[in-house]
Structure formats: structure tokens, C-alpha cells
Amino acid sequence: MNHDIDVKKLRVNCFRQSKVAGEFMIQLRVPGSLIKAKYLAVIQHIAETWGNGTFHIGTRQTLNAPGIKYKYVDEVNAYIQDYIKEIEIEACGIDMESNEAGYPTIGARNIVACIGNSHCIKGNVNTHELARKMEKEIFPSHYHMKMNIAGCPNDCSKAHFCDFGIIGLTIPEYMPERCIGCGRCATVCKKVATGVLELVNNKIEKDMCCCVGCGECVSACPSGAWAYSKQKFYRVMIGGRTGKQTPRMGKMFLNWVTEDVLIAVIKNWQSFSATILENKPLYLHGGHLIDKAGYHRFRELMLKDVKLNPEAMVAERIFWTETEYRSNINVKKPIA
């Protein structure tokens, strides 16, 4: 039986095609992955009323209800009006119309984030607050982009494997007058980070060159000789991706940028995409888009009118390291 369903249109509406003909899965955005627990009732209601009673935690931290028959799409869209309004318009401050048409676009995907410093002892930044600010810059837009936000360089939310990965950093401040010379920060830095600290005659010397900004030295310190910088900093990884052809880890684009700079940069994503795609919002991974533009063109467009903070560093060039499934030169049958 031919349902005559425009699956592309539905996909843009955040309903994903099922292998069961005529069934779809709704994906509710959860920007920054933290919302009030009461919204679990929303996805439960959708799943039990229109879906197959199950619920999937999306790989990009969306709330998904599979098994929704096509005929219920309008009902579901009407039902999620309040959810979209409360999350996107009220919590993220997005200037968009509230209606019964469901999500206006799938474009920029849900912003993935770890729990961040609202809970985690390792976190340097509040990932949810940042995600909501970022959501406002990238949604709703038909231009595709996957953004992940990690609260610290542990990168639990895989900023290294998305188009635009943001990692929260600190430049810890050392107060030698509070230091007891135990060297624990140096030991911990060596063990879990990059070993940039050295205890020299009972005080710490730091090689700022290779500091990853994780803040482990601060939490390791028994005497409060280290403090998180009052200013929060970010690292931006670009062009990471998974996929069938050329998966690769993202590379560092910016280091030690402030939130203002970060927002100014991300504001340029739409115009960068429009320029490279000649104003056609094609479904093209951000990494491929950067490849299409070339890194230097990408950098030029993304940093347009951006005033960098004094600490900021920008990649001069990028050496991508891809897994080339099309060559497979290193994979051979073992010799019997």
C-alpha cells in the first residue's frame, strides 16, 4: 500500500521514518540536555497515546517516541505546542511563532551537553545555560549543524565528534602564598591531564603552553592555592564526524575564547553556510561544509567582525586525520 507520504517534509518536521511503513518517530529537542522532570510526562503521553508505548533517549539527547502512525502526526504536533513554547521560546528566548505545526525545522540538531558544572565536580561551565544561548543562535534554521557542549576537557559529550564542539575551560589562578608545596596538583595534572605543573622548591611552576584548562589542579589543592578563573573560557573543536565514509575526530579551531567571542563566532554559522551552499540549505554535515569551503575560508567567514579576547588563540591550519573507508589500505586478510 502506498501511503504517499512526503518523508522529507516529515523529517524536517522532526518525524523520522520507520522501517514499518507509515510509522514515524517524533524527536523532541532538549537543548543542553537538562529540562524539568515534569516533561517526562509529555513524552510518556505521546508514546502511550500515539506511539507504541516505548520511549528512546535519542543519541543526540532528544526525547523520542517511535511507532507513531502518520495519521496522528497532526495530533502530536498540536500536543507539543506547549512543550516547544516552554523550551524554545521561553527557556531559550527564541523569537519564533508558537503554533500547532510542530517543529519548524530539523536543521541544526539538538545541542548535546554533559551535565556540566550544575552537578559535576569536574565541570568548568554551566553547559545547559550555554546550550540555551547557543540554541537561540542556531535554531530554527534549516542549515544543518551538530553542536556538542562539554563542561570540561574530559569531553564526555563528545565535542570532538561533531561539527562544532565546545569545551568549557578555566585558566586556574595560582596563589603561592596559600600553597603548602605538597605537589598534589602537579601529580594530578601528570596523571589525568598534560603534566604542565612542576614543583620547584616548594612552589609550582607552570608551562602554560600545554595546559588543557581542565581545572584538575584546583580541585586537587588542599589549601585553596588554586582558584578557577573568574572568566570562563572555551575551546572550539570543528569538523568531527562519524559516518560511513570518512569519520574523523574534530580539530581545534579556537582555544581560550570567552563566551562573548563564542557567541559572536556562532552567529556567523548561518551566513557561512549560506555563502558556501549558495543559500540552499542542503543536508550537508558541517565537517563536509568546512571541507567544501576550505579551512581558511571557513575561518575568514566565521571570524568575520569577531573581536577576539586577548587570551584567544586561532588555528593557523588544520591537519585532518580521517578514517578512509574507501581505501582500507591497512586492512588485509591475515596470512594463513
Partner: peptide, 10 residues
Amino acid sequence: NFPLEGRYSD
């Protein structure tokens, strides 16, 4: 009070 000088961020 020394704002933001605690063991954990913020």
C-alpha cells in the same frame, strides 16, 4: 567570602 575560589567551579 572569596567568590568563585571554592574547590569546584562556581
